[in-house]
Structures are given as C-alpha cells and as structure tokens.
Computed example of a mutant assay.
Amino acid sequence: MAKITFITSDNETITLEGTSGSVMELAVNNNVKGIDGDCGGVCSCATCHVHVAPEDFAKTGGPEELENDMLEFDDLTNEYSRLSCQLQISEALDGIVLKVAK
C-alpha cells in the first residue's frame, strides 16, 4: 500500500492510499480537483499533469518518450513534471507528494 499526497491549486492537501492501478485513477476516483484523466489513462491528453516534489522525484524517475511528448504541449511543465496516468501505484511511491499542475 502507498500513501500519496496531492496538493491542489487551491493548496488543499489530500492524502490517499492505494494498492494498485495508476496514480491518476486514484485521484479521479477520489475527486482530486485538477486531475481529470480525460483520455482514460492512455497518455494522450495531459489532463493528469502533476509536479513531483523534488525530494520524491527519484521514486518516480523521469518521463519516457511518449509521456515527454505529451508534456511538451503543456505550458505548466517543469523538470519535475509527470503524467499521473503513467505512475503505477506501488510501495515504492509510498509518501510521495504531487502538486496538481492546474
């Protein structure tokens, strides 16, 4: 099980627990504001963009080519940007903090 903390654009902090699936699914299923997942998690819309806390970036690693291509279309990217649909929940993500990009 992993505890994942989301910080919304309203600075609301939401900590959720998950055991499987994507981080995007966890956020959508729990109505985290700003995580829409319009494409259903197939890395084609970037509506699940998050900024990984710098101290947690080693837990996620950087985006692969397809994800990086999608992020190029978003004006809010930074060096810690990831699409939460591409982050699979595992114990390795326990304690991670994600700032919702929009």
Rank of each mutant, 00 (worst) to 15 (best):
H51W: 14
V50G: 01
A27D: 14
S22L: 08
M24K: 00
T47M: 04
V32M: 04
V100L: 05
V28C: 13
A53T: 12
L83S: 05
T77G: 01
A53F: 13
V97G: 01
S81W: 14
G40I: 11
V52P: 05
K102C: 09
E25K: 00
L76H: 01
E65D: 14
M1H: 10
T60D: 06
K33G: 08
S84R: 02
C39E: 11
P54W: 04
Q86H: 03
L83A: 01
F73T: 14
N68P: 11
K3W: 10
K33S: 15
D10P: 06
S22I: 14
Y80C: 01
L87A: 03
V100P: 00
I89P: 00
E65G: 04
K33P: 13
F73Y: 10
K3I: 09
V97N: 03
I14A: 02
A46D: 11
Y80M: 01
E72Y: 00
G61W: 12
I35S: 04
K59H: 04
C45D: 11
E64Y: 13
C45L: 08
I89M: 02
E72G: 07
P63T: 05
N31W: 05
F73E: 07
A92C: 02
S90K: 00
E55N: 06
P63C: 00
F57L: 13
I7Q: 04
I96T: 08
V52G: 00
S84P: 13
T47V: 08
S9M: 14
V32W: 04
I96H: 00
A27P: 09
M24E: 12
E67N: 02
F57H: 01
K59M: 14
E91V: 12
E12C: 05
G18K: 00
S20L: 03
D36H: 03
T8V: 11
I35V: 13
N78V: 08
D10M: 11
N30Q: 07
S84Q: 07
L71E: 04
L83M: 12
I4T: 03
S22W: 12
E79Y: 02
H51G: 05
T47L: 02
G40W: 08
N11Q: 15
S22K: 00
K99I: 10
N11D: 15
G37E: 12
Y80V: 01
G41K: 05
F57Y: 14
G37W: 11
Q88G: 12
N11G: 02
L26M: 10
Y80E: 05
E67S: 04
N31L: 10
D74S: 09
G37D: 09
E79D: 15
C43F: 12
D75C: 03
T5P: 06
G40D: 11
Q86T: 11
L87Y: 06
S81Q: 09
M24Q: 05
E91H: 05
L16V: 10
S90G: 11
C43Q: 07
G95F: 10
V32E: 07
D38S: 09
A58N: 09
D38G: 01
Q86V: 13
D69T: 14
